[in-house]
């Protein structure tokens, strides 16, 4: 190598730029070879890891099946399994993941046994470590584990993670509050300072579907400082037919924020509220097309032809889109 270096620099008689180019080319070639080797290593590593994973899952499945269904299963074998098969990071990760799947698939006694096994294998320690991590994806994973295994963590930690800067961590934290709440699943909303994304709303809806206790009164959060929370609550008031809250939603029909006004009109439509039509007709002329279209839909579903006709002046204007929507509504009434 040294000889080669000496040749390039002192004896070759080449111009300096050629020497530099040769060195750069060699450097690139070296990087190419290293990358090719790394690609091959990655392929072997991933395959090896997948095989290890599959082997571990097979062993784990046998072990859990024995633990759950074999009457002659010995308690001592749990300790033995933990000591031999739940040692490495990968084993702990895969075991946690598999136990979470079992826990979702089993109900009643089997579910309780699976949760017990989670603790006996000392996997809760990993979850706590992950929650305390500085890496957001570990915090999200830790929260996912504790909420699915029903493990309580410190209230202050949960609240801090509820307002984490990463939306993924916030999602897992709010699911934690819903899943672990005994009586008030949405009380975390009081402490939520960040906006609620549609993704989070979908997960909350899903969690509420499986909620066995009384569904909360959504009007409690209609004065929340986050408009997304208010919008979500208006949506849920109609989804859960909370007719007693209609009066509290009506002021939002005149709310300056388009999203809230739209949700309120939709809510009235779904709940078949006739009184709301007259309220929205008052400001119709000054609304934008999105709201106007929602109002026309509301009239079509819960209003009358007479109410629609009060808007016939729209036919003389130049708003073609609304004219067509109006004519569609008229066609509906006259059909």
């Amino acid at each position: 190598m040294e000889k080669f270096y000496d040749y390039i620099y002192y004896n070759s008689g080449l111009e300096w730029i050629v020497n530099v180019n040769i060195l750069i080319s060699l450097l690139f070639l070296l990087l190419i070879l290293l990358l090719i080797l790394f690609i091959l290593y990655l392929r072997v590593y991933k395959n090896f890891r997948n095989i290890k994973k599959a082997e571990h899952i097979e062993k784990l499945t046998d072990f859990i099946n024995g633990y759950l269904f074999d009457t002659e299963f010995e308690e001592a074998s749990i300790e033995e399994f933990r000591a031999h098969h739940v040692r490495s990071k990968l084993q702990k990760k895969v075991t946690t993941k598999e136990i979470l799947v079992y826990s979702q698939n089993f109900k009643g006694e089997a579910n309780a046994s699976i949760k017990k096994l989670f603790f006996r294998l000392e996997l809760d320690g990993l979850a706590f470590k992950e929650i305390a991590s500085r890496k957001w994806y570990l915090r999200a994973r830790g929260m996912h584990t504790v909420s699915n295994m029903g493990i309580k963590i410190q209230e202050s930690t949960a609240v801090r993670l509820l307002n984490d800067k990463r939306v993924e961590v916030r999602l897992q934290s709010l699911l934690y509050f819903i899943k672990l709440s005994q009586k008030y699943p949405l009380n975390f909303l009081y402490r939520l300072e960040e906006p609620l994304t549609i993704w989070q709303q979908i997960h909350i809806e899903d969690a509420l579907k499986g909620y066995k206790e009384e569904i909360p009164d959504f009007s409690k959060w209609l004065n929340h400082k986050q408009p997304t929370v208010i919008g979500f609550c208006i949506k849920q008031i109609s989804a859960f037919d909370q007719y007693e809250n209609v009066e509290k939603v009506i002021p939002f029909l005149e709310h300056p924020e388009e999203m809230l006004k739209k949700e309120a009109i939709r809510c009235m439509r779904k709940m078949g509220n006739h009184e709301s039509v007259n309220i929205v007709l008052t400001n119709f002329a000054s609304e934008n097309n999105t709201i106007k279209k929602e109002i026309l839909k509301l009239i079509k579903e819960v209003g009358s032809y007479n109410q629609l006709q009060t808007l016939s002046y729209e036919l003389n204007g130049d708003n073609e889109e609304i004219k067509i929507e109006y004519l569609k509504a008229e066609e509906y009434f006259l059909k």
Binding site: E15, N21, S25, F28, L35
Partner: peptide, 15 residues
Amino acid sequence: IFFSFFAVVYFFSVL
């Protein structure tokens, strides 16, 4: 000089 530059460009694109 031409081939030395060509080699640099070629190996960079492969890289």
